[in-house]
Amino acid sequence: MKTWWTQYRRSRQLDEAPAPSAGREPLEQLDARLRRARPATPLPPPGLHDAILRRVRRVEPAREVGPSFNPWRLAFPALAGACGLVVLGLVIWPSRPPVSPVVVANASAWSGSPAADPLLSQAGTATLSAGRRAASEAPAAVLAPLEREMALFESDLRQAAQLAMASLP
């Protein structure tokens, strides 16, 4: 193992720079011989140079072109972006808290701040609390006739809306 490691290190040294003179080590001797020896190779055929240049003149080299817009380059980023948006939507949409109808009604009816009209705010609060109290305290026998009144009220509203729509030019 030690010999192997020593030889490997010597070989790496020969990779960096040749031995200054053919040493006594087998690798150094071989390195010197490989540098000195001429490999036995034939010369290329005489017409090779002209044949290469004839072919080169026939072909058109691929010229260097500047950066140009290629719509296909956008295909992958666009697809990845769309997938990302879909995943984001799937994550966010189910985790959204349900919107309370009261909040929606308040938001649509709101036209100013409570500080600007404290009396209106107080009256609204009092009416809501009275209604909540009446709904919880009133017996079903009292509330049952009101259903008919509610149905009539809805019918009146629908007719008023139809009249308004019909009166539009």
Partner: peptide, 20 residues
């Protein structure tokens, strides 16, 4: 030799085509 000459030719022509 013939194959080597052909490959040499192909190599240099390809190099020219792909110089960019």
């Amino acid at each position: 030799e013939t194959d080597a000459a052909e490959l040499t030719q192909d190599t240099l022509v390809t190099a020219y085509q792909k110089l960019a």
